[in-house]
Amino acid sequence: MSTQTEPESETEIEESEAAATETESAVESPGDRRRREKGERAVEEEAKRKEAEETLDEEDTVQIKVFRYDPEVEGKQEPRFDDFHVPFFKGMTVLDALIYARDTYDSSLTFRHSCRQAVCGSDALFINGSQRLACQTQIADLDSETVRVEPLPHQDVVKDLVVDMEHFYDQMDSVEPYFDADELPDGDETQRQTPENREKVKMSTRCIWCGACMSSCNIAADDNQYLGPAAINMAYRFAMDEREGEIRKEDRIKIIEQEHGVWRCQTQFSCTEVCPKDIPLTEHIQELKREAVKSNLKFW
């Protein structure tokens, strides 16, 4: 180690001497001064941060190990993990820790987030080996000294913890994800729906498009065209809604029984386990399989 630090400190001295002579001889332009001051301040701030990090009491900190990758930044093109020590407080979530690390140590640390309350579906990540929403995961509940945070598996990584969601969105779009009733009542009247039917579709309507289920699914990992649990659940949400009508329902069943539809599911329940909204995905897929069988019998 010592052989490495020595030459480095030498160059530093050289550089600062050069800078000193320059400022003496030439008149510094306001822009240069600002840049120089900025540079000096940055060094100071960095030192302060380092010190802050080092003096943090081990007891009250949590270590997060975060996946880093950037296709265009030198040193980040090879994926790696960075460690951050973050002061812990009661109630702290993994998202809080990531935000702290970003705002305090490294502003290039990149992840999606917005609502902080498990409704926007932005921050599904791979935390200590399973798909979870960072904002919904209490660090205390993880019961582990370090928290390992990675992007969702089976999705292309754009940068750090951000994955490309296009494929997920395409699958959602492919099931005609919109209400489309056979007929509607006159302008100023609402449709009727029994509370029972509303209850039946209730869980399926809670999806927040986080992609955790898709990322956990082995079948989806092997078959890129598989609709996946979220899209099938979306189809379920409309097929089971009595307001749409029988004709539309038949169309919907046709969509989900295609080659890459419900029959691919091998009832492994991984999607159901990770869904942050507790949607019984596997059950919904099974039910649609039964509906598909029923509707085929009818047409024979």
Binding site: Y178, D188, E189, T190, Q191, T194, R198, T205, D241
Partner: peptide, 23 residues
């Protein structure tokens, strides 16, 4: 506002319902 809420219902909004099926 009433017309807008009815629009939403026609677009499939899963409103909570009364026993008779109304919103």
């Amino acid at each position: 506002a009433p017309e807008e809420v009815i629009n939403l219902e026609h677009w499939g909004m899963p409103f909570s319902r009364e026993e008779d099926g109304t919103v």
